[in-house]
Nucleic acid binder design. Structure first.
Length: 269
DNA sequence: CTCCATGTTTAGAA
DNA sequence: CTTCTAAACATGGA
């Protein structure tokens, strides 16, 4: 569950399920997801304290405790949070468990264990240390224009560059480009003012809508690329065949008719 | 068995 | 310095 909408959905889930509850213990069935810390160290710092607030920046989720400690979570490709009753079996793929008072526990689940959990003094510390750019949803049209057109390279790579825009990954970059009618391999130099504007509006619309739908792809509009984002898929708008291209070592899915390689096209977003 | 997968980091090449 | 590519990480699904 890794991109901005999924992480924001996890943040709300964390708020609803664990906020204001006291941590009574920490276990790490798979300590390899712990970065520069351990179950013992986490317990020492968090035991007896409550999650007071939550924050998200890009794909990172932060839980702020009443003693000033901040837990930073990244989900890699397969991470998710799960609140469950203490008397029930530990969920599959539980990598770290936060035992909470009132018999509710919080599990950080991860199949591939590519995500990481660490302890920091503040979200800003991690943001600086990881060199993250501004959160995608905080970027206004002027700043977006500078971020997207500065430098060179493919526009899809730029949307996914966490140092420039934090929060967008492979799937949502495809959705944003599709909605904006921009080919993923278009060089950022050469994008028109109009196209940059469409990309900005598309980015905001896609991310906000996905969050509103709790990042549940089943609920996404039929006009979105998402459900057709596969080999042999067809475009939900024009019915043409979906193509793929490799950008930044990732597979980008797009509609060659709605997202022409060379310029020109007016449309929604 | 092979290929691919929502992500990031790192090393080495352009 | 910036950007790109391949590999690594660990695991499961097609």
């Amino acid at each position: 569950m890794p991109e901005l909408p999924e992480v924001e959905t996890e943040r709300r889930y964390l708020n609803a399920g664990a906020r204001h509850r006291r941590v009574v213990g920490v276990r790490a069935p798979h300590p390899d997801v712990l970065l520069d810390t351990s179950a013992v160290a986490l317990g020492r710092r968090l035991k007896g304290h409550r999650i007071e607030s939550t924050r998200r920046h890009g794909k990172y989720l932060f839980a702020g405790f009443d003693n000033g400690a901040w837990l930073a979570m990244h989900f890699g490709m397969t991470g998710t949070l799960r609140c469950y009753r203490h008397d029930l079996p530990v969920p599959d793929y539980a990598a770290v468990l936060f035992l909470l008072e009132d018999g509710r526990d919080l599990a950080y689940l991860s199949r591939r264990r590519l995500g990481r959990i660490s302890l920091v003094d503040s979200p800003d510390e991690l943001i600086a240390q990881r060199r993250l750019g501004p959160d995608a949803l905080s970027i206004g049209s002027i700043a977006f224009c500078d971020l997207i057109t500065g430098g060179r390279g493919a526009v899809k790579a730029r949307l996914m560059d966490q140092a420039r825009i934090a929060g967008i990954g492979n799937e949502y970059s495809d959705e944003i480009l599709f909605r904006a009618g921009v080919h993923p391999a278009r060089p950022v130099t050469g994008l028109s003012k109009e196209e940059v504007g469409r990309l900005h509006r598309s980015m905001r619309a896609v991310l906000r809508k996905a969050i509103a739908l709790r990042a549940d792809p089943e609920k996404y509009p039929a006009s979105w690329l998402m459900a057709n984002r596969r080999r042999n898929g067809s475009c939900p708008v024009c019915g043409g065949a979906i193509s793929t291209t490799t950008v930044s070592g990732r597979t980008g899915y797009f509609c060659p008719r709605c997202q022409p390689r060379h310029g020109k096209r007016d449309n929604r977003a």
